[in-house]
Nucleic acid binder design. Sequence first.
DNA 1: CAGAAGCGGATATGGTGCATCCGGTACGTG
DNA 2: CACGTACCGGATGCACCATATCCGCTTCTG
Lengths: 201, 201
Amino acid sequence: MDGKTEQSAATNRPLRRDAELNRRRIIDAGREVFAVRGLQATLNDVAHHAGLGVGTVYRRFPDKQALAEAVFVDELDDLAAMARRALDDRDAFAALAGFLRNALARAADNRGLRELMRLGEFGEGGIARARLGITAHCARLMERARAQGTLRDDVTEADLAPIVAMVDAVMALPEERSSAQWHRYLEIVLDGLRARPPRAS
Amino acid sequence: MDGKTEQSAATNRPLRRDAELNRRRIIDAGREVFAVRGLQATLNDVAHHAGLGVGTVYRRFPDKQALAEAVFVDELDDLAAMARRALDDRDAFAALAGFLRNALARAADNRGLRELMRLGEFGEGGIARARLGITAHCARLMERARAQGTLRDDVTEADLAPIVAMVDAVMALPEERSSAQWHRYLEIVLDGLRARPPRAS
DNA sequence: CAGAAGCGGATATGGTGCATCCGGTACGTG
DNA sequence: CACGTACCGGATGCACCATATCCGCTTCTG
C-alpha cells in the first residue's frame, strides 16, 4: 500500500519488471508460509518456497517484520473495516458475535494471522494501527450491547483478548477433530457472555 | 518414588548423605523454576537456582525429562487420585466440574504443569501414565453425566482437551487482570456444556 | 587418613536463524 | 546489438543457545 516499511523509504524508483514480479512472488510465498508455519517461519523458508534466493528476499524486505507487514496489513485492515461495519448494526450483540465469527473464521486456517492477533507488540506499523482499530470498534460494540441489555454487564473490553485466546487455543490443538470444533466453543462462550434473557426452553 | 528414570537403573546404591541432600535441592529448584519459566527452562537454570553446579544436576538426572518426571509425577498422580475420587460422587457433572476447578487451580500458578497437561507426548513414564488415568476417569465421568442428563449429549471425552486448552490459554495471557479471570471462563464453558436444565432464574 | 564419591563450571558440540556479499545473470535503453 | 546497470543466488560468516561432558579439586565415610 504505502511501501513505508519496505526498503529505504527514500529510494522510490519503480522496480524493474522482473524485480516487481519477484516481489509479488515473495509476498505470495510469505502469505502461504506464514499461514501454515506461523510467523516463526524463516525468511529463508519464504525465499525457498517462492523459488527465489534468500538475497532477493532480504533486498526487498529488510526483515521478517517488514514482510509480515506487507503480507498482513490488507487482511487486518479488512477485519477492521468489518468491525467498523458491525457498528452500523442495530443489535450490537449480534453484530459483535457476527464479527467474531467472521474474523475467527479467517484466522482459523492462518496461523500467522492468529499469532498477529495475539501478539500485543509487533511494532507500530499498519498492523498495530489496524489492531487498535479493531479493538476500539469491538469496545464500542460491547459498550452498546451492554447498554442494550444483551451483553452481561460485567463483560468489558478486557474480555476480548481472553475470548480470542480461548478460541485460538482450540484452533491450535494438534488433533484434527478438536481444532475443527472451534465454532462450537465460540458459541458456548458467546452464550455465556449474553445477558440471561427471558429463556423459554 | 521408583528411581526408574534417574541415573542408570542398575546402580541402585544409596547416595552419600550430601548427594542425597543435593538431589532434593535439585528437585525443589526444578519445581520452582519449571513453575515460573515452564518446561523450556534449562537444566543449567535449575542448577543455578539450586546453588549447585551444572554437572551435579546432569549426574543425577540425565536430561530434562528425567528431572521433570521427578518433579511432576507426584503432582500428577495426585490429580489422578482426585479424578478417581470424583467417580464416587453421585452427581457426575458436579464431580467433573469440581475436578476441573481443582485441577486447573493447581495448574494456574504452575506453567510447567500446564505444559505437561497439554503435551500429548512426553515419554511413557509415570507422567504419561498419570495423564492417561486422569483422562480415563474424566471420560467415565462424562459418560455418566451424559447418562444422567446433566451433560449435553454431544459432548464427549474428545472435548476435554479443548476445555483445558481454553482455560490454559486464558491463564497464559500476559495481562495480569485477564489471567486471573480464568475462573469466570471456566464457569462459562462448564455452563455451556451443561444440558439445558429446567432453569428457574 | 586413604580413597571413593561427589562437585563445579569452563568449555566443546551441534543446532538454528539472521543477514551479507559478490560473482554472475538478465534487463532494457541507446 | 551492446553495454551499463539493476538484480539475482545462495554459500557463507556470525551470533546465539541449549545440551552435555570432562577432569582437577573438595568432601565424605569407614
